[in-house]
Simulated scan of single mutants.
Amino acid sequence: MIRVLQIIDTLQAGGAERLAVNYANELRNHNVVSSLCATRLEGPLLSSLDNEVGYIFLNRKSTLDIGAVLKLRTYILKNEIDIIHAHATSFFIATLVKILIPRLMLVWHDHYGNSEFLHKRPTTVLKLCSLFFTHIFSVNNVLEHWAKKKLWCKNVSYVKNFPVLNKTEYDLTNLKGEGGKRILCLANLREQKNHIRLIEAFKIVIKDHSDWTLHFVGKDFNDHYSTSFFNKIDELNLEKQVFFYDTKSDILNILKQCTIGILVSKSEGLPLALLEYGLARLPVICTNVGNCGELISDKSLGILLNSDKDYEIAKALASFIEDETYRLNCAKNFNEKVSKYFSKEAILANVVKIYGKTI
């Protein structure tokens, strides 16, 4: 059996982090001995990790934390790991340990969310590290083409993200507002996610639909953008209709309480939240960034926005609010597409096949 270690910098509830945990948990069903390493910070996703999955936390304090590198090396040798599957920015420590253990195969998973702005991406260190990559997984076609053109690894594949929604029995979140009239945005408080524009659009919507509410779930980084977000809610007097819940682990429970799922990001890879909306049978509205157009490929699947202007977002929301039949049909069709083409079984079977070719 292949022994694979997923590496991720934190276990905070972001898309790349959730996917790393999903890989670690689900690969056990594909004849893989699975482990996971968090390098810098633990978080709420640790509770989602199956007990049968091996786990190590490095508590890495700096980029060149030699103690953390040696701790990781010891774990890999002790557990006879064959492949390290490094997600996002964890590629650097993965490269260091690959240099120390040359027999290791290193797969890098590129989750870069700003794929609309790749010209601004720092590449010097990544390009050097790519000399040690056996294979690169890219979460959308844009990143796949970029890696083939810019990096020094000849094996690059577009690998779809897949959603997993597990039922939890604890720390259950009760959303405010009226049932059947809740809009959900599942995204950490980062500028690229465009929360403030969504709030401005929602202010337009409630002129005619004052009984609807907007709910944000995601990590608050307590930075300038966070301050702007909460100031906008206050400025528009939306404290009783817009609610923020920070990081939550009971995502399935939250999705079940909502009526519409929305993302109006300025840039994306292939957002896991969008797939989770589909798996939970929510009708979706999303901006046409990253590979979102692959998911919402026609109007029967949801509403794909070519603009993030507030009135365009408001128009899309009003369409779903005012036409229940259209809303429910989109939810059904999108659920069927996600279940068929983004199933964990098919995607992981392909990943394990690639793993097998690397060793």
Results as ranks from 00 to 15, higher is better:
1 M>F: 05
2 I>F: 11
3 R>D: 04
4 V>L: 12
7 I>A: 00
9 D>M: 09
10 T>V: 10
10 T>L: 10
12 Q>F: 02
12 Q>G: 04
14 G>V: 03
14 G>W: 02
15 G>N: 06
17 E>Y: 02
18 R>N: 12
21 V>L: 02
22 N>D: 13
27 L>K: 01
29 N>F: 11
30 H>F: 15
35 S>M: 11
38 A>T: 07
41 L>A: 13
42 E>F: 05
43 G>M: 09
43 G>S: 10
51 N>T: 13
52 E>W: 02
54 G>H: 07
54 G>P: 04
60 R>P: 05
64 L>I: 14
70 L>V: 10
70 L>R: 05
73 R>N: 06
74 T>S: 15
75 Y>L: 09
84 I>Y: 03
85 H>E: 06
87 H>C: 11
87 H>D: 11
99 I>S: 06
101 I>G: 04
102 P>E: 09
103 R>W: 11
104 L>N: 02
105 M>I: 12
106 L>S: 03
107 V>E: 02
113 G>H: 09
116 E>R: 09
119 H>P: 03
125 V>S: 05
126 L>S: 02
130 S>N: 06
136 I>Q: 03
144 E>D: 11
149 K>Y: 12
156 V>P: 08
163 P>K: 00
168 T>W: 08
170 Y>T: 14
172 L>M: 12
174 N>M: 06
181 K>R: 14
187 A>M: 01
188 N>G: 04
189 L>Y: 11
197 R>E: 14
198 L>D: 00
199 I>F: 03
203 K>C: 06
206 I>A: 02
217 V>L: 05
224 H>P: 00
227 T>F: 12
228 S>P: 00
232 K>P: 00
238 L>K: 06
241 Q>R: 15
246 D>P: 03
250 D>Y: 07
256 K>L: 13
257 Q>C: 07
258 C>V: 02
262 I>W: 03
268 E>N: 08
274 L>N: 03
274 L>V: 10
274 L>A: 13
286 C>T: 15
287 T>I: 02
289 V>S: 01
290 G>A: 06
293 G>Y: 09
294 E>I: 11
294 E>V: 13
296 I>D: 05
299 K>S: 15
302 G>F: 00
307 S>T: 15
310 D>N: 13
311 Y>R: 10
313 I>T: 03
314 A>I: 04
322 E>I: 11
326 Y>E: 12
328 L>C: 09
329 N>I: 12
333 N>V: 08
340 K>N: 08
347 I>T: 14
349 A>D: 14
358 T>N: 14
358 T>V: 14
